[in-house]
């Protein structure tokens, strides 16, 4: 039943080999599945289940528990606005409204041409840089409502093939909490996290 590419299957096998118990690889494989098909289709869940000797129901149970696994199609750019306590106190509601208004899209929905999805999420663990926004799980800190509008326009007009934290931070971010990592050219190419070294960074299989 497999119609994943051989390269992806090989990647899956490498990931599985890292764990003493096969089933422990379920989360990275779900990310891999999202990279392969853009979101978690029923078919992707079945594929992961088959690779791990689980039932699709078990994989679905994991996939539905975590909000970062998408069980419905999302746009090419997934904009996640943190509305938990720190960000909320620093004005994240305004940021979210600005993004909803600029994208003409209520939170939780995807636009008709499949370009943008807007969602509000719980704490992203970057309270020091509140309010924070992620695009395809790449983080931007210290975002203002104005910068947020610019971000939406940029995504819509420039349609970057890869988004990455450093570039977006420079263009749309404000005060940073601290240096998160060694700057890298890699970024995310789809609505899934960049999870080195497991998965998807820098490989746009859909282009």
């Amino acid at each position: 039943m497999s119609d994943w590419s051989e390269a992806t299957l090989e990647r899956a096998r490498q990931i599985i080999a890292r764990y003493p118990e096969k089933r422990s690889a379920v989360m990275p494989l779900l990310y891999l599945a999202m990279a392969e098909e853009g979101w978690l289709t029923d078919h992707a869940i079945e594929q992961v289940a088959e690779l791990l000797d689980l039932t699709p129901a078990q994989v679905q149970s994991v996939a539905s528990f975590y909000t970062m696994y998408k069980r419905e199609p999302v746009g090419r750019y997934l904009i996640s606005v943190c509305t938990s306590i720190s960000c909320m106190l620093c004005g994240s509601d305004d940021v979210l409204h600005a993004i909803e208004d600029e994208a003409d899209l209520p939170a939780g929905e995807t636009d008709d041409d499949g370009l943008l999805t807007v969602e509000h999420v719980e704490c992203l663990g970057a309270c020091g840089g509140a309010p924070v926004v992620q695009v395809n799980y790449e983080l931007i800190e210290g975002v203002t409502p104005e910068k947020a509008r610019e971000l939406v326009r940029w995504l819509r007009n420039a349609t970057p093939a890869v988004v990455n934290t450093d570039e977006m931070q420079e263009l749309f971010g404000g005060r940073r909490s601290f240096d998160w990592a060694i700057p890298t050219e890699d970024g995310a190419v789809g609505p899934y996290p960049a999870f080195q070294p497991y998965g998807t960074v820098g490989q746009d299989r859909r282009s």
């Binding site: 869940i45 039932t55 699709p56 129901a57 078990q58 679905q60 149970s61």
Partner: peptide
Amino acid sequence: PLIEFIGRGYNTQVNTFPN
């Protein structure tokens, strides 16, 4: 294990996989 918990929190339910 063909029935499992789905979702989380208030929205948790027991169900099967669609197919």
